[in-house]
Design a binder for these strands. Structure first.
Lengths: 157, 157
DNA sequence: CGAATTTATCATATTCTCATGATGTTAGCA
DNA sequence: TGCTAACATCATGAGAATATGATAAATTCG
């Protein structure tokens, strides 16, 4: 209802990346498998977030996507923003001359609600939406990591 | 941002009809001119609202669209509902197994905001968004009514 | 009846979102 | 250098939302 599927998938993807920890880049294939989007479309989507400075992408073996900032510093708005129509802050009913200045009745009544919604996306961070990674048991295994180790010894970690 | 253009136009149209008073049906042509949608598309849109019992339509000379109920009894939800995707109330980020029952973190945080938005559309009525039709001066002229009077004696036969 | 008026509807076009498959480009590593 | 792993990008297409023009159907009224 609220977010288009691209924004939803992007958000799930970023959430997934965050939950894997910052150790190493996560491959698009793994992300796609985990969050359920089409691989290439997800690649393009995440590339947008890379351009926006939300993610860092790296190619070649060992490559993938990482968060640029810690999850607690990354708001939902930064993640979904690039996938929302940019013309925000216009009138609820699309009146041409209505905006935050010179609002029509509809806009005036609506804007208080709209502001709350905006605050939600602007204040909630990725860390807030963590799936609570085993806070109690402390069973954070070294990550069962389906990542296929490159043939030989990898000392680059 | 919040409503698709069909829903926006429908809302502007209903608002316009309401503002004209309940005296007589309003023609699609006039509505289209006033609220700025394509005529035929608007016709189809309003026809949907007629099917929903929000408007009454009548054809032929003197025909047009009227409100069925008084503006104070018509909520925004009833007007925009038919034009919104019906799958509401799912997870904000589109997680398959998440809903109001068994919510994920994202959903839990979001649902309180979402509920406020729903209340806005469910509680606000068309009357609330009136452009305040000269409440004080009581200058309700018999409506300058651009409606073209049916031609007088035109006996072409 | 017959003509004018007005909505209803059909066929089609355009644009945008979402998706897919093929191919290009970069990076690591022997 | 050459192989391979990984993201980047291109060409294409299906499907929905939006729009347009032509035509059909209903209604009023002389």
């Amino acid at each position: 209802m609220w977010l288009n599927t691209t924004a939803q998938t992007a958000l799930r993807a970023v959430l997934y990346i965050a939950e894997q920890g910052a150790a190493a880049p996560i491959r698009v294939d793994d992300i796609a498998k985990a969050v359920g989007g089409p691989r290439n479309y997800l690649s393009k989507t995440l590339h947008v977030l890379a351009r926006e400075g939300v993610l860092r992408s790296s190619r070649g073996p060992g490559g993938g996507f990482q968060l640029v900032e810690p999850p607690a510093a990354l708001t939902l708005a930064r993640v979904i923003g690039p996938f929302e129509p940019a013309d925000d802050r216009r009138c609820l009913v699309g009146r041409p001359h209505c905006g935050d200045a010179n609002p029509c009745q509809a806009h005036r009544r609506w804007s208080s609600v709209a502001h709350q919604v905006e605050s939600f996306f602007g204040d909630t961070t990725i860390a807030d939406l963590f799936v609570a990674p085993v806070q109690l048991t402390r069973a954070r295994h070294p990550a069962p990591s389906t990542r296929k180790e490159p043939p030989h010894a990898r000392s680059t970690r």
